[in-house]
Simulated scan of single mutants.
Amino acid sequence: MEPRKEERFRRIPQPFREEFLQPLTVHDHETIHPDLYRHLIDEGTDIIIEGLRRYNENRKRIISRVREKIDIRSVEKNETFSSLRVVASDAGNNGVDLRSAFIPLYASVALTAEGWRIPDEPIFIAGKPELWTDEFKAGDREALLAFKIQAEVTIRAVEKWSPKFVFFDGPLLLSSWIRPVRDSSPGYIKDFNETLDSIISLIHACYVRDVPIIGFAKRVRAVSLCRSLGVEGMRDTALLDLVLKMGEYTVPNKLTGGLLGEYEKSAKRLGISTQEIREILIFYSSYIRTGFRTPYRLELPCYCIDRLSDAAVILYTTSEEDGIPFSINEADRMVRVTTGISNIRTLMIYSKALELVNAGKMDPEDLNMLTLQHGEPWSLRDEDYIEFKEVG
């Protein structure tokens, strides 16, 4: 190595060198103090298990009291009907927090499916590569942008494939926790408004084509149904797990709260008429059991509530054992931005930064700004997604 380059690399900060090599080395598992381990793992899990036991006993007592108050419908599997063309979409995000900035990483996909078949190539949108040097709600902003481009790619899919149904992986009505606060950055406020405009544009695009759009929420913490039944301290899915059988779904309940007020402002900003706003911005939710796991939540605008039963047939017929419909599962698989993918990108950033140092276009000391924030995960593979193939 040339003396000048050797001196330049000698000036590379040690934290950066250690972090760059970390994925390529084997590390001992981190340990905590034995007494703390005993409290957290041994004694703590005993207390948690006892709490879960009492929770389940209470759940079974409650269900005997409220079962008759839950209005349920059912559908049968129909492979022929479920061969109708649908569009499914999803988005993923998994940015990295460096010492100097947050670098978002997000993408979306939409595909068309007919039963268990995908007849055409999917459509993708990759998130904008940028640096957020002053965003304190970086994770929320990244999630917003993922939602935004999911709506945008779904519009393109609807225009291209003219489906009979649209299945949107996730809720249609965003929670109020994503709303900007007084100290939110200008970038966050801008992305928030543009995200709402995108989702309203999607729902309106489906409305004018008379295509039902269904939000399929897989991670559900809602308690609204339980509260309407006078049940406190219990999630809807925990209660309905004892009620719904395969192919059954609850009669839709009207949704309140969330960002309904902001949705209406967005619709007016887009020039949507008052009559159309009433048709597309009244949302309902339903829970459906399509597999062996707890029920999933569906969200839909009122203009297509009369076709919930038809949507339920397709979702139930095309679901795997875990209850995830084929089209949604395929979209999720295509756009799953794992920690491994995120860290491979970070490693690529490190490599290209080193090339700039080698070319004399960046000072070695600048690499310190590329080290990860304390506690950021660093792995080149996600254990949850390792596949073991059978031998022979």
Rank of each mutant, 00 (worst) to 15 (best):
S185L: 03
C226V: 05
D197R: 03
R179A: 00
R156I: 10
V181G: 05
D197H: 04
C226A: 11
R219Y: 13
V223K: 03
A217D: 13
V231N: 06
K164H: 15
I213G: 06
A238T: 12
D210G: 15
E159G: 08
D197L: 01
R209C: 07
E152P: 06
D169Y: 02
R235V: 09
A157Q: 05
D236A: 08
E232W: 14
I149S: 11
M234P: 09
P171V: 07
R156V: 15
R235I: 15
V220P: 05
P163K: 03
H204S: 09
V153H: 05
R209D: 08
G187K: 06
F167H: 01
L225M: 10
F168Y: 11
P171Q: 05
Y207T: 04
I213W: 07
V181Y: 03
R221G: 09
G215F: 03
V211Y: 10
A205H: 10
T195S: 02
G215Y: 04
Y207N: 07
T154L: 01
I189A: 08
I189D: 10
V223I: 11
S184T: 00
D183G: 03
I155K: 11
R209I: 10
C226T: 09
F147L: 12
G215S: 04
L196N: 01
P180K: 01
Y188E: 02
A157H: 08
G233T: 10
N193T: 12
V153N: 07
Y188T: 04
T195D: 00
S228A: 11
S201L: 01
S162W: 11
D210A: 14
I213T: 12
A238R: 10
K148N: 11
F216I: 09
A205N: 13
S184F: 03
K190Y: 14
P186I: 01
S224W: 00
A157N: 06
P180I: 02
L196I: 00
A146W: 10
I214S: 06
R235K: 12
V231M: 13
V211N: 07
F167G: 00
I178V: 09
K218H: 11
Y207V: 04
A205M: 09
I199P: 01
R227L: 10
S175P: 04
S184K: 01
D191K: 12
I213K: 01
